[in-house]
Design a protein around this nucleic acid. Structure first.
Lengths: 249, 249
DNA sequence: CAGTGGTCTAGACCACTGG
DNA sequence: CAGTGGTCTAGACCACTGC
């Protein structure tokens, strides 16, 4: 149905492969909110008919989106929009592991929620104007009941309206799944800058360590569709009993 | 030619998909050394004829190996065994970037090479016996001429015979490309545990910092084909002007 | 059982590379 | 130009899921 530039006998001068065009169209359906997290998308047969291409071409487009973790294929059931509700994806963005290899419980204590004018740095990373406001969330993550991470999270108020500490505390689940269900914002990828710092006063207090103690300091920028940055997160990590796991593939 | 279990009409009870079997066979040709780093492997048409399957099936096997960075496809030329010589792959395992975003030069100074009995920890990670010996390389990496990383590298002597500081210093290029060309050992993936520590005396000295200064401490285990561990690397990183970059995808 | 994704085939044509 | 990988088709059959 759609105006793909590559009719079976392409005479058009400039074109990208059919499956790329279809991938772009699917991406559009994802980012426009036409399909929501957890939804099943149309079957390969339906999509092939709709786009008037063969099933193999649709398949290649879906394959790529699945390999980018935007879609999830389930044999016999269908293809679904990836969601942060899934266990698989839930811990993709929390990389801490215990020294002893054991499992551990994670809990979160919201310290503060403020709406403020963002610093220049945060503004730049989020692509905001000086006058735009951001929600600042301060929270402490604990592992097995012991404070392990202090985080400061910055979100554009325009995308995340009316955030309050109470609402945040009421939600059971990860922040990213809250963003998804409450604001329809899905995090797709993130980039981190990792450093070691001597604990600043503020962090030392929350983590119950001396103020020159070495901490991991992680600055993360998270992106949604179309590489749009939607979150800046600063974290101070205690790495005595837990470490940050990184896989180079 | 090979005895794939899935002849066109499969009556055999247990089997994995054809393309997986072919992938396994290609993997074998890679790990056995039949194909070396940088070599061109047989064309899709040849492989299809050889395995008596359609080109599409071979293609799917190669696609997966390419997505795992074991093979590199080059349109119009052929498919090649990935090598650490390539710029693309050369920096896949060094994640430091400058705060100002500028490029910078990296240089390496070999401090020491010893053949020793490995500690229990290193033995365990490398799958060695207590009595097996390892090569211990101590070196300092500098960025723009300023010492930035102290590394201690442990290699099984059995796989890396006759390593000397002189040979190491004579080689121009990354350590991984040296391993590849000199010992025919190719690193495929690595896992890291990242922590912040207060600089130990030894590291502080090499990096010219005070001994309680916060440093990144990275423990890396590198693997070759078949998930065989072949290197343990301990690194202390100064992160004042450079940071460790991590991408969550 | 009908509907989904997963595998596989055979063949066509295109785009790119190097000699 | 011949040879390579890249795209696309049409159709077959399999494996899995849920009703």
């Amino acid at each position: 149905m759609s105006d793909l530039q590559n009719t079976p006998n392409p005479n058009t001068p400039i074109f990208s492969p059919l499956y790329q065009q279809i991938k772009a169209l699917l991406l559009q359906s994802l980012s426009s909110g036409e399909w929501n997290a957890g939804d099943m998308i149309p079957s390969e047969v339906d999509l092939a008919a709709h786009f008037k291409v063969s099933q193999g071409t649709v398949r290649k487009a879906i394959d790529e989106l699945a390999s980018e973790n935007l879609l999830v294929r389930r044999q016999g059931r269908g293809t679904f929009v990836a969601t942060h509700q899934e266990a698989q994806i839930r811990f993709r963005f929390l990389s801490m592991q215990a020294d002893n290899g054991q499992k551990f419980t994670t809990s979160s204590a919201v310290v503060d929620v403020d709406v403020i004018l963002a610093s220049v740095g945060v503004c730049a990373h989020l692509g905001l104007a000086d006058s735009d406001r951001v929600v600042q969330i301060t929270r402490v993550l604990s592992f097995n009941g012991r404070a392990g991470v202090l985080e400061k999270i910055y979100l554009p108020e325009a995308l995340f309206p009316n955030v309050t500490a109470d609402k945040l505390r009421a939600y059971k689940g990860t922040l990213y799944s809250w963003f998804e269900s409450e604001f329809n914002v899905r995090m797709i990828r993130a980039v981190e800058q990792i450093r070691a710092v001597n604990a600043p006063e503020s962090a030392a207090e929350y983590l119950n360590v001396a103020s020159n103690e070495a901490l991991l300091y992680v600055e993360r920028i998270s992106y949604t569709y179309a590489d749009k940055p939607v979150e800046v997160r600063h974290g101070w990590y205690l790495t005595h009993d837990y470490f940050y796991k990184n896989e180079l593939i």
